[in-house]
Design a protein around this nucleic acid. Structure first.
Lengths: 191, 191
DNA sequence: TGTGCGTTAAGAAAAAAGCTTGACCTTTAT
DNA sequence: ATAAAGGTCAAGCTTTTTTCTTAACGCACA
C-alpha cells in the first residue's frame, strides 16, 4: 500500500523487518484524514495515538495561563507527533495538536505498539533508536534556545528547515522559537 | 472571584446558599479555557462534566450517518451544556460539544455534584428547579418543531434570542432549527 | 399544480487570519 | 548611564477562509 511506504521506509532506516512483521505492523495502523485547523489531540482527552504524518502538517502547542501559545513541535510529512506524556501515562493531554493543513496521518494505539514491541525485537529497537535520536535533538534545541539570540535562532531554523519555514504561518514559527511575530517580521525586513 | 459571579447569580435566582455552601460549591468547579473549534465533549468519551459558560459560546450537535450535523443546543454566557445522557449514565457520549468561540467554562463533575446535592438541600433544589425549567423549554421547542413552518420557527428564534442569532453562524442556527441555510437566506431576503 | 423547501453549484460579501510597521518600554550587556 | 535587543500594543493592510446569497432545478403534498 502506498500510504505505508513512508513509514516503512522510516523504519527501514533503523532496522529490518520480515514480511510478516511488516504485515503485523501495518495491521495496527489507522489511517485518518484531518482538515486544516482540526485538533488531533486536545486538553482533557487522552492522546491515544502515536501519529505519523503521511501528508500535510501539524503543530503541537501548549496554551499557558495567559492564553499564550507555545509551539513545541512543528511536524510535516514523515514526522511523528503526539502529546507524549499523555500517550505514555494515559492521562488527559495538556497540549493541542492542530492540523496546519489538510493532512493524512497514520495512528497507532499505545497498547498495540506495546504489544507488538514486546514480541518483535527489531520493532522495539526501532522505536528505541528513533526516540533516542529525537531526545538528542530535543536537547540541542533547548541549548539553542537558552544560548542564542532570537535572530540567530530564526536563521538557524530557516536554514535548517527552509521548506518548513516557508510553509507554516509565521506566528507558529514565532511561538516555536520563542520570539514575537513582530520581531520575526523585523528580522526578515532587515535582511 | 469574578469568574464565579455569573454562576452564583444563576443559583441565587432560584435558591439561597450560605457562605460555606457557596465555598463548597465553588470548590468543585474547574475553570477551563477552550479554543474555538475545540471539542469539549466527543463521541466515544464519557461527558464527565456539567459545563457552565462564563464567556464565549458552544454548540452541541449530533452527526448523523449521512454526515449531517444536527445542533441540539446553542449556548452562550450563563448557559449550561453537556451531553446529558452520557453525563447521567456514564456512557460514551453520542454528541459533540464544540466551542464556537474561544471560551471560558466552569466544569463540575457528576460525582461532585451528586455528593454536594445529597448534603445541601438548597443546591439540590436549585438543580431540580433549573432542570425542570429546561425540560419545559425543551418540550416547547419540540412542539414548535413539529407544528410550525420553517419561517415561523426562524422568526420565533430570532425574536427570542436576537443576540444569539446575530452571533452564531447561520448554518449553526439552520441546523438547530432544521432548516437549510439556503432557506434561511431566502426567508431573510423576503422580509 | 403551485407553494414550500431541499440540493447543488457558483459567486459575492463578510469575517478572520496573517503580516508589517511605528511608538514606546524593559532588560541587559557594555 | 546608555545603546542594542526584543517585548507589547495598536493600527492598517493583504490574503485567505468562512459565511451568506442567489439561481437553477427537483420533489412532495395540500
Amino acid at each position: 500500500m502506498n500510504v505505508y511506504k513512508g513509514i516503512l521506509n522510516h523504519i527501514a532506516r533503523y532496522v529490518e523487518l520480515s514480511e510478516s512483521e511488516i504485515k503485523e505492523f501495518i495491521s495496527i495502523l489507522k489511517t485518518t484524514r484531518v482538515k486544516k485547523r482540526q485538533f488531533i489531540v486536545q486538553p482533557g482527552f487522552v492522546s491515544e495515538y502515536r501519529n505519523y504524518i503521511v501528508e500535510g502538517s501539524v503543530r503541537v502547542f501548549y496554551l499557558d495561563d495567559l492564553g499564550k501559545e507555545h509551539t513545541v513541535i512543528i511536524a510535516i510529512e514523515d514526522w511523528f507527533f503526539t502529546d507524549f506524556y499523555s500517550y505514555i501515562h494515559r492521562t488527559p493531554a495538556e497540549y493541542y495538536a492542530e492540523a496546519l493543513e489538510d493532512s493524512l496521518i497514520l495512528q497507532m494505539k499505545y497498547e498495540d505498539v506495546e504489544e507488538l514491541c514486546s514480541r518483535i525485537h527489531s520493532l522495539s529497537q526501532y522505536f528505541r533508536l528513533f526516540t533516542e535520536r529525537s531526545m538528542a535533538y530535543s536537547y540541542k534545541r533547548t541549548i539553542s534556545n537558552i544560548s542564542k539570540t532570537s535572530e540567530e535562532r530564526y536563521w538557524e531554523y530557516v536554514n535548517k528547515y527552509p521548506q518548513i519555514a516557508s510553509r507554516v504561518p509565521q506566528y507558529v514559527l514565532a511561538s516555536y522559537l520563542g520570539i514575537s511575530p513582530e520581531s520575526i517580521s523585523r528580522i526578515r525586513s532587515r535582511s
